[in-house]
């Protein structure tokens, strides 16, 4: 069906597309919405949306982002992402996470394992591969396992859609609003973001 088009029009090719893979309860959808929020602050057009399957804790969940300098009109899921984020590495057994992923793009995996080990699981994916130990960072900075905050910082770093400085400033602002009554949580979340920006590899 692709062959039906001889060329992609400008309205489509300037969109950065991102796909999130997680499990229900881990916050992949929240991370996608937070990412849309923070990129919006740079003046871009954004979309952040979940794909709803069976709603239960632990079920595979997919969420998406589009980012563009122009109005985004398309309202479909994303089949050829530029970036993929895997919030839960146990998904490798059941979900084809690199499906359609651009070679010029990248995949970010939340794992404590070596990158070489992860690459073996990616079915010959030729693009860039990044890893981040979101569990370690989350436990260290928040005392609890919330992988979405570190994964958000990781996609900002890897995609380069905004400067790290602007990102941290906007997130500080957003956390102050969200956790007005719990200042300790703000500090922990900011620490998680900073650690991730240093440790994603």
């Amino acid at each position: 069906m692709k062959a039906f088009f001889n060329q992609r029009s400008d309205s489509v090719k300037d969109i950065i597309q991102i796909r999130w893979h997680g499990r229900g309860g881990q916050g992949a959808k929240t991370a996608a919405l937070l990412f849309a929020d923070v990129v919006f602050s740079t003046g871009k057009y954004v979309q952040g949306f979940p794909e709803y399957g069976p709603e239960r804790m632990g079920a595979p969940v997919t969420a998406y982002n589009r980012i563009s300098d122009n109005v985004i009109r398309v309202h479909s899921n994303i089949y050829e992402p530029d970036y993929v984020i895997v919030v839960d590495e146990t998904l490798f057994d059941s979900v084809d996470v690199t499906k359609g992923l651009s070679k010029e793009g990248a995949i970010i995996v939340n794992t404590a394992r070596d990158k070489a080990e992860i690459i073996k699981l990616l079915k010959g994916y030729e693009g860039r591969v990044y890893t981040i130990d979101a569990r370690k960072i989350s436990l260290e900075s928040l005392g609890r396992y919330h992988p979405n905050t570190p994964m958000l910082a990781a996609i900002v770093k890897v995609s380069g859609v905004m400067s790290e400085e602007t990102f941290l400033k906007e997130m500080q602002h957003s956390f102050e609003h969200k956790f007005a009554a719990k200042p300790a949580v703000i500090k922990g979340n900011m620490k998680a973001l900073r650690l991730t920006l240093q440790e994603v590899k």
């Binding site: 001889n6 060329q7 992609r8 029009s9 309205s11 489509v12 309202h75 479909s76």
Partner: peptide, 17 residues
């Protein structure tokens, strides 16, 4: 509904052809 937005992108690509 929402598929109209998706159709606009399809139309622009087909018009370009």
């Amino acid at each position: 509904g929402s598929a109209a937005g998706t159709a606009k992108d399809a139309i622009d690509q087909l018009r370009a052809d």
